[in-house]
């Protein structure tokens, strides 16, 4: 009796651990399959260039205000932090160098990624999810149009193209935010600040920034579209899909950011 009792609880413990682990692997597998399927279909016609432009406008242009605001405030705050922190060991002069490196390598891509994920992944999941629950996706298939090519591929490509551009803009604005604060509040010399920024920045930094941006862009659209297509069960389902899309995109961005950083410096 007691033996089966112990065995039973052991099984229960393993089941409790195993289920989410297996479930986790299964969803990673499904998302990967979804990504491969989309890419494979996107490589063959029909293509939808107008849909791509529409999405570039939505993801790129419409995200500019929020991206610019995030960058300028973060750049300025960063300069002040480095100045105050650096003054503890007489390293105030490192402000321009650290602002540019931190902004370009890390904060630019990650902050833009997270902001755009909040804006765009959720919108994609809500739109595609609503289309799913109102049978518009099924209708599209019966009208002989592939939803992967018509809906998913334009979003995926637009996001991968838009994010590097947004990140470049955010980097410049962020550095400019740091510059403004350093000149007007911390008493830096404008020309030597810019000179230092310029001499520190290397091609590799920009490369890393762009690679991260493109990867984040891919994950933003992937998470939004996947959650949207998986939507089940009316308005509540669309709500869940939207949440899943944003949380999924955040996790993927932060995780891949670490992986890319460690790979580059490993």
């Amino acid at each position: 009796m007691s033996e089966t009792g112990i065995l039973g609880s052991l099984v229960a413990i393993f089941a409790a651990i195993g289920k989410p682990v297996v479930g986790g692997f299964a969803s990673v597998g499904r998302v990967t399959l979804f990504a491969l399927q989309t890419i494979q279909r996107a490589l063959t016609p029909p293509w939808y260039p107008l849909r791509l432009l529409e999405q570039l406008f939505q993801i790129g242009w419409n995200s500019l205000p929020v991206v610019a605001l995030t960058a300028v405030f973060t750049g300025a705050a960063l300069a002040q932090q480095i100045y105050t922190g650096g003054s503890r060991f007489n390293a105030q002069s490192t402000v321009p160098a650290i602002v540019v490196i931190a902004m370009v390598r890390e904060l630019g891509p990650v902050l833009v990624g997270l902001m755009v994920a909040g804006r765009v992944s959720s919108a994609m999941a809500a739109e595609i999810g609503t289309m799913r629950v109102t049978e518009q996706i099924d209708a599209m298939v019966t009208l002989r149009t592939d939803p992967y090519r018509y809906l998913i591929a334009p979003r995926l490509f637009a996001s991968v193209i838009a994010l590097p551009i947004l990140v470049c803009i955010a980097n410049v604005i962020g550095i400019f935010g740091g510059y403004l604060l350093s000149i007007h509040k911390l008493g830096f010399n404008p020309s030597s600040y810019l000179e230092m920024t310029n001499s520190i920045l290397e091609g590799d930094d920009i490369m890393m920034s762009l690679v991260k941006a493109a990867v984040f862009g891919f994950f933003i659209a992937l998470s939004g579209c996947y959650a949207g297509l998986q939507t089940k069960g009316g308005a509540a389902g669309v709500g869940r899909a939207t949440t899943n899309a944003v949380v999924g995109a955040f996790v993927l961005i932060l995780l891949s950011n670490l992986v890319i950083t460690l790979t580059a410096f490993g």
Binding site: T134, E135, Q136, D138, A139, T142, R144
Partner: peptide, 16 residues
């Protein structure tokens, strides 16, 4: 084969 089919969905399923 799908080219032979037309479908009227319950809710219409028009693209809004």
């Amino acid at each position: 084969v799908r080219a032979k089919f037309g479908m009227l969905f319950q809710g219409g399923a028009l693209f809004d």
